[in-house]
């Protein structure tokens, strides 16, 4: 039978948090709807209540707060692409959001929704992890802040408690000497779920072809988006050329634990961690 849920439509964040406090166990919040509606249609979820967040305009803001960029949970992927703030302060996130689905999906889908869905292949998440973004969870009792990397528990699973709502995402603004690259491999060039993807953030070293800091996040290559700390360390503070880059990026093989599905085999995905990482660093070091 088609799921016939009750709908709640809060007008403000406190109202939404009040509802979650009372009925959190039964409520499924919906932001852009691009994931939830598919699950409803497939009968994969049968919530008794759905909370339409679309009226919560306070969660649609992109703000500069000190050295940080605050992105409301309901900021759409398109808003990220079009905002002058994100373009200058978070270019890596812009690159990631650009590869999401299609124009319509980017117009509807939100950063908070992408995080809450917690797909291992979610295209904005590796960028957030590589940027060491934090997620702010709000409940009636207050707020708590977690690194995005720790917020993710498994495919479709997060640290969000039923009475909490993702309020915003905080990331440090880009600075001089920092660079990023986002590299996605899909079966086609739009409307594609990642076979594998990687987001790379670096701070260039003082010496040519060196990196003083490196952060790497792999998508669709483990149960959650996964940092590649071993390969980050190996890349830091050493002179890199094509050959050494080729050698070091092989370490990515040890960073990931992919699965076989209809899109690709686990073995191929593991090799792609290396290939996509190599290409990303090559772009950063030798092409830009």
């Amino acid at each position: 039978m088609v799921n016939d849920f009750r709908l709640v439509r809060p007008k403000t964040l406190p109202e939404a948090l009040g509802l979650l406090d009372e009925f959190g166990q039964e409520i499924e919040p919906v932001a852009g709807g691009t994931d939830l509606l598919v699950k409803l249609e497939d009968g994969r979820i049968r919530p008794s209540q759905v909370m339409d967040l679309s009226a919560l305009n306070e969660l649609k803001q992109i703000r500069l707060v000190g050295e940080d960029l605050h992105l409301g949970a309901l900021v759409t992927h398109t808003a990220v692409l079009e905002s002058p703030l994100t373009r200058t302060e978070a270019p890596l996130l812009v690159m990631g959001c650009r590869t999401v689905g299609s124009t319509q999906i980017r117009n509807m889908g939100t950063l908070g929704g992408n995080l809450a869905t917690a797909s291992p292949a979610g295209d904005s998440i590796p960028a957030l992890v590589a940027l060491e973004a934090k997620v702010v969870l709000a409940s009636k009792k207050g707020e708590r802040t977690l690194p995005v990397e720790d917020f993710l528990v498994g495919p479709g699973k997060t640290e969000r408690r039923r009475e909490e709502l993702i309020k915003e995402i905080i990331l440090p603004c880009a600075r001089e000497g920092e660079k990023g690259f986002y590299n996605k491999l899909g079966q086609r060039n739009a409307l594609a779920i990642s076979i594998a993807n990687v987001a790379v953030w670096v701070r260039l070293g003082e010496r040519k072809n060196t990196l003083s800091r490196v952060r790497i996040a792999f998508g669709a290559l483990a149960p959650t988006v996964k940092r590649g700390r071993m390969v980050e360390d190996a890349l830091t503070d050493r002179e890199l050329d094509e050959a050494s880059l080729k050698g070091i990026t092989q370490l990515a093989w040890k960073e990931v634990a992919p699965i076989t599905d209809i899109r690709a085999s686990a073995q191929y995905r593991r090799d792609m961690a290396i290939a996509l990482l190599y290409q990303s660093l090559y772009h950063i070091l030798f092409l830009s």
């Binding site: 339409d52 999906i105 117009n107």
Partner: peptide, 11 residues
Amino acid sequence: AVLACLTLISQ
């Protein structure tokens, strides 16, 4: 541009 099939009417 949005997808009407993935938009709840309340949205």
